[in-house]
Nucleic acid binder design. Structure first.
Lengths: 347, 347
DNA sequence: CTGAAAGCGCTTACAG
DNA sequence: CTGAAAGCGCTTACAG
């Protein structure tokens, strides 16, 4: 390995001079600069960034701890984080908690993982990261999970701690718009298949649905609201119930694509045509939603944007260049496909 | 920030002693150990691993450069890498090339990305990683892409360079077994929808298909082999052609799930029932394959295992503990669902 | 415009 | 069993 010292000797200058030309700092005469650069190339010098980091007390490294990289939302978020990291010349130290394998969807058992989080953060800190992004697998309150005197941003989850930031998308607005879309198409009897109602997203989406109805003076019918558990099967079961309600809804908003898939299966079994007899909207825009029959109209999540925004906020907090927002909500967009139809043509 | 020096002073010992107790090395009397440990806890000392890395010339960090984290295979592979990294006390420095966004599936244009790879590797080297894992988005020959005097393993792609390793799955065996499965169920007229034939996976899968036929003395009918481009639409188009062949096949092996999805759509349009009239097997076991109607029988890829194995090989090469295999091929497994039926019951 | 020297926070032969 | 000291590869006031 060739060091700055070797360059200095070969170029007949001091190590300080070499360092200056590498970092393009100080006043170095064009002649010595050229000489040094030449030697650097000849000896194929590769700087040692860990030595530099130790000296300047800054690693230009961000710790990213992701709850589970195999959950559908994580890769896109990380992709966004990477994009912004590249733009800012930052590297990513990645820790994957793999919580899904340990506790599945039972987030009540998340306590089991808290020590893992502590350990992960400690490891990252010992490696002197400049800040941390914590990527959740769904939005929930994680206040107190991480205590650190460096900036940390919670991506797809939340924390209210000082010097900590949260980036999510706007569930309520998304559900509001999806419901409005249905109403705009003439639907008045719009059912909702909810996920587990103790979750922040389910709550927000319900509110959006409700407010859309109210804002159009449509009656809120509790019979039209069914609570599933985010899984395919519950969508199926709840759809069966909705289909047998006396005043059957003409549209269903499912709180995720999987449950919408279950709705499709129920309809197939019951001879209900989608979208001719029933319009269906999903949520998440997962890959599978494109391959459903018919292709599912659904709400696309700004995952990449969440990642980018998270990194931008973190960079702002680290460089103290601006005061970042503490609680960002990004906008979703509806992707129109083939599972929705105007009400006028129904029946 | 509290340093070893501070601990030493507070505990009235030398920094050497503190270092010894932290690293559980040398002979330290139980008394001084306790004393030091106590002070460490009191002052909440956090070791600085970048200083340590500089000194011991070893970072316990692996560079992972992934061509595109949003491609379906990447998260699982990275998950496996993480799992093994955890077991070995290693950290991951992640670089995401995001090639998909730049060149899509036109891997002929991959040359555009070579400089990115060089830059990524250089960055990783400057951060003194102990080795590198390069995660491709499909198996192809990447010999010469990375020149490095540290061990590097190619995950889901290949390199024949000295001191470099490759980990993939066994395409040929997987296709062989899938075809055998169909044959065992009584099918004799088995069609193949291939991906672009210039790719290593397509070649291997074709061979497996071919060898299975031959080993059962079944005629190889070139009319039964169609070449698609891995996309949904080509599966649809090729299936249309296969369905109109005079001696229509009773089963189709599609080289990926997306094309199998296209087959389903063609069947739906043509009134061909799956699996009653036609059995279909896919490849990849992507999430969507579970949500197809009917659920697709497909070949599951040992992605997590590829990640783990890659890391294990890298660790072996770094520690020189054993001589790792240079070209590993892991076994796939068939996941039986609802798109295949015995031939006897056909028609 | 350039160099000598201190120091970032650790580890580790070596001496005692 | 413990400590003094050198050194890992850099950067950066400071002096000249």
């Amino acid at each position: 390995m060739v060091r700055i010292k070797d360059i200095a000797k070969a170029a007949n200058v001091s190590t300080a001079t070499v360092s200056y030309v590498i970092n393009e700092r100080g006043n170095i005469s064009s002649d010595t600069r050229k000489k040094v650069l030449k030697v650097i190339k000849e000896l194929n010098y590769q700087p040692n960034n860990v030595a530099k980091s130790l000296k300047i007390n800054k690693t230009n490294t961000i710790g990213v701890v992701v709850e589970d990289i195999t959950v559908f939302s994580s890769p896109e978020i990380i992709n966004g984080i990477n994009e912004s990291a590249d733009e800012n010349g930052l590297s990513i130290l990645l820790t994957n908690l793999r919580v899904h394998r340990r506790i599945g969807n039972n987030f009540g058992e998340f306590d089991k993982c808290r020590t893992d989080v502590k350990a992960a953060v400690e490891e990252l800190v010992s490696r002197q990261v400049d800040g941390i992004i914590y990527v959740g697998v769904h939005n929930r309150d994680l206040t107190g999970l991480i205590e650190l005197d460096k900036p940390v941003v919670f991506s797809y989850c939340s924390s209210r701690t000082e010097n900590q930031f949260s980036v999510n998308y706007d569930d309520e607005l998304a559900a509001f718009e999806a419901t409005n879309y249905l109403i705009g198409l003439g639907h008045q009897k719009i059912a909702l298949i909810s996920g587990l109602i103790d979750s922040i997203p389910a709550h927000g989406r319900f509110l959006g649905y409700y407010k859309a109805l109210v804002s159009h003076n449509l009656e809120f019918n509790p019979e039209y609201v069914k609570t599933g558990d985010w899984e395919y099967l519950s969508g199926y079961t709840m759809a069966k119930e909705l289909l047998s309600v006396k005043n059957r809804p003409t549209a269903i908003l499912a709180m995720n694509d999987l449950m919408a898939g279950g709705v499709f299966e129920a309809c197939r079994e019951s001879g209900v045509r989608v979208p001719e007899d029933l319009s269906v909207i999903g949520f998440d825009n997962r890959e599978c939603s494109f391959y459903f029959t018919p292709r599912l109209t659904t709400v696309n999540l700004p995952l990449n944007e969440i990642g980018m925004k998270s990194m931008e906020i973190l960079v702002g907090a680290i460089r103290k260049s601006d005061i970042p927002e503490t609680d960002v909500k990004l906008k979703c967009n509806l992707v129109e496909r083939e599972s929705v139809m105007e009400y006028s043509t129904v029946r």
